[in-house]
Design a protein around this nucleic acid. Structure first.
Length: 289
DNA sequence: CTTTCGTCCTGACTGC
DNA sequence: TGCAGTCAGGACGAAA
């Protein structure tokens, strides 16, 4: 479930607790996450000081003083929490780090879709998971032109293209649905058929919805929680995701239509049939609210 | 090259 | 009430 806004929320929550601190102890409580831990994972972490906590797409990247970078992926259900002093172990606590300031950082992941990796910082840009990633949709340089360029020649539906991390990084099912709604684009539209205006709208919508979600601390459905245990609240602002059969509430149809759902690539796509017309025509001049 | 599909996992939910 | 079945979904490798 964690998509870009949730991962960014976790990064922001984590950074003030751990930046500048030295890892004094590291323990793996459950070794079999989705991908095996790299060799000597814990031993390599101990003694290193945390320099920077970054994020790329859905990955948290922790640069360490020894020239290595710790990569954390939260998978579907992963969360990080911090505690000062004695801590009570919870079910699905898989990795525990102790820091020089007395803070404990715990990685918890019930579904074990997440993983961690550790590699030379100098090789980060060529890491298998990072090297092919598309642009960050909240980056200042991301616009309709670069989106259109990356969609060129793609016959796959735009909804599925948005989930492809090589085209745009960090988008998951929730924000793909919400951005398409906001841009007024039907999810089955062939990706490469979107014109300049539609790509401009979509780039703008992606950026806007992600920034609003970050400001709201992400979306908490079942799993996501912030580092301090708080839940995000962007889920209350969903226009379409998870709202099949409910009245469309923010576009011009004002409840005269209900949100529909269809399955694409095994995932649910939620959309308003009034705002998101098949064939790409958007209802002219529709205000959002 | 692009696209689809199966795989991993467990908790929450549905239906009988 | 209990239990089996279904769903959710990120990333990757294999297959088409």
């Amino acid at each position: 479930m964690p998509e870009l806004p949730e991962v960014e929320t976790v990064r922001r929550g984590l950074a003030p607790w751990i930046t500048g601190q030295t890892i004094t102890d590291a323990k793996i409580r459950r070794p079999n996450l989705r991908i095996p831990f790299p060799p000597r994972f814990c031993a390599r972490l101990v003694g290193q000081t945390i320099l920077v906590v970054r994020r790329q797409a859905k990955y948290i990247l922790v640069d360490l003083s020894g020239g290595e970078t710790l990569m954390i992926h939260l998978g579907m259900s992963g969360s990080m929490r911090t505690a000062k002093g004695a801590t009570t172990a919870q079910p699905h606590d898989h990795v525990v780090l102790h820091l020089s300031n007395g803070v404990t950082v715990i990685y918890n992941d019930p579904r074990r879709f997440g993983f961690m990796d550790l590699f030379a910082t100098s090789a980060a840009h060529s890491h298998k998971s990072l090297v092919t990633l598309g642009p960050e949709p909240i980056d200042i340089h991301f616009d309709g032109k670069s989106l259109k360029n990356n969609l060129a020649g793609r016959h796959t539906p735009i909804k599925q293209a948005l989930l492809d991390q090589h085209i745009v990084a960090g988008i998951g099912n929730i924000y793909a649905c919400e951005a398409l709604f906001e841009a007024g684009i039907h999810p089955t539209t062939p990706a490469g058929s979107l014109g300049k205006a539609a790509c401009d709208r979509l780039a703008q919508a992606l950026r806007a919805v992600l920034l609003r979600a970050i400001a709201a601390g992400g979306s908490t459905l079942r799993d996501h929680q912030q580092v301090d245990g708080q839940t995000g609240y962007f889920q209350h602002e969903f226009n379409v995701y998870g709202r099949a059969g409910q009245p469309c509430r923010t576009c011009s149809c004002h409840g005269r239509h209900t949100v529909k759902v269809l399955t694409q690539g095994g995932r649910s796509s939620f959309f308003c049939p009034s705002r998101q017309k098949k064939g790409g025509k958007r209802t002219a001049g529709v205000p959002m609210t």
